[in-house]
Design a protein around this nucleic acid. Structure first.
Lengths: 234, 234
DNA sequence: CTCTTGATTTAGACAGGACTAATACTGCTC
DNA sequence: GAGCAGTATTAGTCCTGTCTAAATCAAGAG
């Protein structure tokens, strides 16, 4: 299993922390080099649908095990050790998603939840077999890159579809993995990783983006600000 | 996942209870018809490597949820409801074992442990997909029959190899699924489900059984009483 | 019928996780 | 620099599951 001796719940916190560190600060090209971006207690609590005190409580325990560095009122961040565990489980998750979709035909939008249920009990040995069976994939079905076994995470584009200017054509790199309704819709209109899309126009301030999908003669599809912010392109 | 709302630990108890009910009483052709064979607290505790008080405690809680019928000092047995949950998880377990071996090439003797780790988080949907991918198998790699989805358990032979008389030839129906050392050995010498074997001779009282494996010109293999008692034939 | 022994259960603690209510801190505004 | 709003943390409970030590039951031996 993962990060031996680390409970399912603790792993969930580490994973959430990892995700929040990744997505949040964009840190405006600043704050790189060890300036560990701290994540607030409430952000974690919200992400895990747990009360704030529960989060505080768990963060303190994870800190005691040197998996996160936590300073009261200042938020938390993963230690090197905690990051390794988080990456291990992210790898499990994404590999499982890929396997479920590719090998077992699980629908795209259900893969995330199924993988989440299984990820914390997947052994390294089975993981390795799935990895080989899939041909050592580098991306999961949503376009997220799969960390390597020794915990290296390939860099990916961080430009969101929302930030693309009108008329520009870009390649979809990744879409979110949760929110199955949204995923079902994206699959339906063909906005998938690897597909080229062009911004046709956009509605008034904060309004929807009208996107033309390659090889699709239909009317452009309308996508909300929220979803286009979560779609990354290059 | 399984038996919704039932924790991993509780499921382990139900599964153990099911296994113990199955293997124990042989009930000398008597005690059929509803005479629910009661399993002792200590048998469960031993099986799960847990203290006796822990077992008592859990049995009481399972009884409160109407999953087992439990009477102090008299042992416990599964209720209809508990049996259904147990069978569901047994199905998950055996299907997973089969899948791991067939589809992913996990070694025979490791399948049990890997399946155990995953079984309680397998959704019905993924289970169904694995079942279909395998061609709706009826037996797992150790020859145990896989309960149907609606909880019916096909009857199997209950004659143990130990009880076969000298010179008689029988077909191996099933071998145990745990004890990887023993399994590795059985695989090595070719004593597998579906293989025909003949009892050559047996050592002095309680001594090893010497078994000749079909199509194998080598010397007969020696198998202990313990292992031959756990191998079922027809 | 009583005693002894071994299996079981009760009692009492503890660790992990989660919650609500109450308190304390931080940082922004004036 | 004081006040306030909002965020975080502490306090105190609860529920699972597990353990050890102590008490209790059941059943066979005499």
């Amino acid at each position: 299993m993962v990060g031996t001796g680390t409970s399912r719940a603790a792993l969930a916190y580490l994973k959430a922390l990892y995700a929040l560190e990744e997505e949040s600060p964009r840190s405006g090209a600043r704050g790189r080099l060890g300036t560990a971006r701290r994540v607030t207690t409430s952000a974690i609590a919200e992400r895990l649908a747990v009360s704030a005190p529960s989060a505080t409580n768990m963060l303190k325990r994870l800190a005691a095990r040197d998996l996160v560095s936590y300073e009261p009122y200042k938020g938390a961040s993963l230690t090197r050790k905690g990051r390794a565990v988080a990456l291990e489980i992210v790898r499990h998750h994404r590999l499982l998603e890929t396997y479920l979709v590719e090998a077992l035909g699980v629908p795209w939008e259900e893969a995330h939840a199924e993988a989440e249920a299984l990820e914390s009990n997947l052994s390294e040995s089975v993981e390795e077999r799935m990895f080989a069976a899939l041909g050592r994939p580098r991306f999961d079905p949503h376009g997220h890159s799969i960390p390597t076994r020794n915990g290296a995470m390939p860099k990916t584009s961080r430009r969101s579809l929302w930030d693309v200017s009108d008329g520009e054509a870009v390649l979809v790199a990744q879409v979110p993995d949760s929110h199955s309704d949204a995923l079902r819709y994206l699959a339906e209109v063909g906005v998938l990783p690897g597909v080229r899309v062009t911004i046709e126009s956009r509605g008034p301030i904060g309004g929807p983006l009208f996107v033309r999908v390659e090889d699709n003669e239909d009317a452009p599809v309308a996508l909300s600000k929220e979803i286009t912010e979560a779609i990354w392109v290059h």
